[in-house]
């Protein structure tokens, strides 16, 4: 087991290296550079400014040298400076974590809290009304384009009924609200984005929970438990559910990195200052250091998530052995 874990940990190094080379190449071989993007065709700007920026960003060096410089700094945990505002990439990214985790983290928790009971219930009532209802209910959420639903909700709850704010994390005037309404204000701003992100993902998790529960229910030991005359409640909660939850816990681990990745569209449409939007806006503006930074950090946490999921699996399920 220990050997396996160490091997997995060591494996992360070449993986991360590979990812960094891959994303570096994708970005740099693509047409266009950030300086041209910023300053071309603006008659109040000196044409020589473009070249000045290219030198400042280090884009005049050959590609391999640019990558080497990046790698050198990366080894000292220096991700470079953002092209956008010359601040260190790590600070730029750290700034996004609270808002991202606040929305995506809460959404993830809410997602499992709602989806797992739905899935387990659906398995228990397989092929009966509740099962069908859960299928349709969750797939309805999955099938509608997020931003379409978001816009409709904004129009209804915001403009037409005027009961919820439309976008942003808090009221612009927040600092001047009395303390007791600040919490409410934060909550009010959270409702729509949280509802849209969570509802959209219910399908996959509840399906997963259903499958996992179905597999457990038909196991011999459940039949044995029933045969022993245990109450239905005990069979389901003490025996079945416990075992069904093992793969679900792993799934939770695999979902964690997506929390950090945020949600590009929801963050954009709700003016939420999260990581997805940062990544997206950096891509659009060819802000290479930030794209690399976010990419590497996400990759790291994905690998870590997989790793933890494996450990969790091993700890929860004694049948699993790694060697």
């Amino acid at each position: 087991m220990r050997k396996f874990l160490i091997r997995r940990l060591l494996m992360m190094v070449p993986l991360l290296l590979g990812i960094s080379i891959l994303s570096f190449l994708i970005m740099h071989l693509a047409p266009g550079d950030p300086a041209t993007l910023n300053a071309a065709m603006r008659s109040n700007i000196d044409p020589s400014y473009i070249e000045k920026l290219q030198v400042f960003y280090g884009l005049k060096d050959p590609l391999y040298l640019q990558y080497w410089h990046w790698l050198e700094r990366f080894c000292t945990f220096d991700f470079g400076d953002s092209f956008r505002d010359s601040r260190p990439v790590l600070i730029v990214i750290a700034e996004r974590i609270p808002a991202t985790v606040y929305l995506s983290g809460l959404s993830l928790i809410l997602l499992f809290v709602i989806a797992v009971p739905l899935g387990v219930g659906a398995a228990y009532y397989q092929n009966r009304f509740f099962d069908r209802f859960v299928s349709v209910f969750t797939f309805v959420g999955y099938s509608a384009p997020h931003y379409w639903v978001a816009l409709m909700l904004m129009l209804l709850f915001g403009v037409n009924w005027g009961i919820l704010p439309i976008s942003g994390m808090a009221d612009t005037n927040l600092d001047y609200l009395p303390w007791y309404s600040r919490g409410g204000d934060y909550l009010a701003h959270l409702i729509l984005p949280l509802a849209v992100t969570t509802y959209g993902s219910l399908a996959s998790v509840s399906r997963y929970a259903r499958t996992s529960m179905l597999e457990v229910i038909r196991q011999d030991y459940i039949r044995t438990a029933r045969a022993k005359g245990l109450s239905e409640f005990q069979v389901i909660f003490n025996h079945a559910l416990r075992n069904a939850l093992i793969p679900i816990v792993t799934l939770f681990g695999l979902f964690l990195p997506s929390v950090l990745g945020g949600a590009v569209i929801i963050e954009t449409i709700f003016s939420w200052p999260g990581m997805g939007r940062l990544f997206w806006e950096s891509i659009v503006s060819h802000n290479y250091p930030v794209v690399m930074g976010v990419g590497i950090i996400l990759a790291f946490f994905t690998l870590l998530g997989n790793f933890l999921a494996d450990i969790g699996y091993a700890l929860l399920d004694p049948r699993v052995r790694y060697d």
Binding site: M11, L15, G18, I19, L22, S23, I26, M27, L29, A30, P31, P257, S258, G261, V264, G276, F279, W280, I283, V284, V291, G295, L298, A299, T302, L303, N306
Partner: peptide, 24 residues
């Protein structure tokens, strides 16, 4: 399987964004 890991390392949607943004 390591190749699979590499592809899975960045959330799919972000990966698609990155590639499409750069290939057009």
């Amino acid at each position: 399987m390591r190749l699979v890991d590499v592809v899975l390392c960045i959330p799919t949607f972000l990966l698609i964004l990155m590639v499409i943004a750069f290939v057009g």
